[in-house]
């Protein structure tokens, strides 16, 4: 720009004026565009801080009444207005954990098959199927879970589990009856299906970043496929895989509708994973409309704040890991 305007001085005066005008218009357009996009970016920050401020403001009455005990109390009694978040926090973490335990091995399996073993003709259909799974709205999973999965689990899997672990110390409590069909375990299974495509597609992308020359070299010195995966691909991509899993965990933590359908919505910590429970988002979705009384509403907002903090920690951790792998890749 500066060069151009200096050049214009040397040229014919009339020609220079036109040129100046055009340049000025360009400059104006540039700065307008910059301001516009900047405003968009700032709007995001404003929104985020607005959410934080209103969450903090809304939860103040409950948190000042119950204090730190809000996080450790198991009570949830709208009649006596005594509220605690522990069952909801417990349910949120345990359902997400079950979901990860199921979805991680399967998702990694899909990714390994797609990148290393799959014949080319199959690669596209399977990849598309996985992505379609990610596109199904969560309410559909909820309805399917309630009408198909839960009755199936109640009739077959859950009685078998209860029977199998009946005499085993400790485990007999974890798999204690009666089989309701819906409960913490069912919610975990539904969540695992929902986060499976996320884990599978991120892992596939991460596996694709491994330079072919590394793998070829390993095959060249006589490594088996397993050894290549275990010794070359896994160490190269490890941190990225963890990042992908954390993003999936973020989704599982906040999922609402599908979980509400199948978790049983009970404010209790049941020692059995087959028993009913609740999650933070399910509680809010269920009770917000009819929450009368300031303390009740405020307690629900406080739950939202707790979920915000949990999700924030998970996502920040994921970002950190992804940043590390990008640095490694640059090296």
């Amino acid at each position: 720009m500066v060069d151009a305007s200096m050049g214009s001085k040397a040229s014919v005066a009339a020609h220079g004026r036109v040129r100046d005008r055009v340049l000025r218009r360009f400059e104006l357009g540039d700065s307008a565009f910059r301001i516009l996009t900047q405003a968009c970016a700032i709007a995001v920050l404003l929104l985020l801080s607005g959410v934080i401020v209103s969450l903090a403001y809304g939860s103040a009455p409950a948190l000042s009444k119950f204090g730190f005990g809000f996080l450790t109390s198991q009570a949830w009694n709208p009649v006596t207005e005594n509220f605690g978040a522990l069952p909801a926090i417990y349910g949120t973490l345990v359902t997400s954990l079950i979901a990860l335990l199921i979805a991680m091995p399967i998702g990694l399996g899909i990714a390994v098959f797609l990148t290393e073993l799959c014949p080319h003709s199959l690669r596209r259909p399977i990849g598309v199927a996985v992505e379609l799974l990610a596109g199904i709205p969560s309410i559909i999973y909820g309805i399917w879970g309630m009408f198909v999965l839960a009755p199936f689990l109640q009739a077959t899997v859950q009685p078998a589990l209860i029977g199998a672990f009946a005499g085993v110390p400790y485990l007999s409590n974890v798999f204690a009856g009666p089989p309701y069909g819906i409960g913490i375990a069912t919610a975990g299974i539904i969540l695992s299906i929902m986060i499976l495509p996320l884990i599978a597609s991120i892992s596939r992308d991460v596996f694709n970043t491994v330079p072919a020359v590394l793998k070829e070299a390993a095959f060249g010195i006589g490594c088996t496929r397993w050894e290549v995966m275990r010794r070359i691909v896994a160490p190269y991509t490890g941190v990225g895989l963890v990042g992908g899993v954390m993003l999936a965990l973020g989704r599982a933590l906040g999922e609402t509708m599908a979980v509400t359908f199948v978790i049983g919505n009970a404010h209790k910590i049941s020692p059995s994973i087959l028993g009913p429970g609740t999650t933070i988002s399910a509680t809010i979705a269920n009770e917000f409309t009819e929450a009368d009384g300031k303390l009740y509403t405020s307690s629900l907002v406080s739950l939202g704040l707790v979920l915000f903090v949990i999700t924030f920690i998970v996502l920040a951790f994921a970002r950190l890991l992804l940043m590390r792998i990008e640095q490694q890749g640059a090296r």
Binding site: A75, F147, G181, G264, H267, P276, E290
Partner: peptide
């Protein structure tokens, strides 16, 4: 809304109807 001693919670009349219909 009360502190239910036990059981499964479902949202709305239709939620309770469906949960009962699907739980033996």
């Amino acid at each position: 809304a009360v502190e239910w001693p036990l059981g499964l919670g479902a949202k709305g009349n239709e939620g309770v109807a469906n949960t009962v219909a699907n739980t033996k």
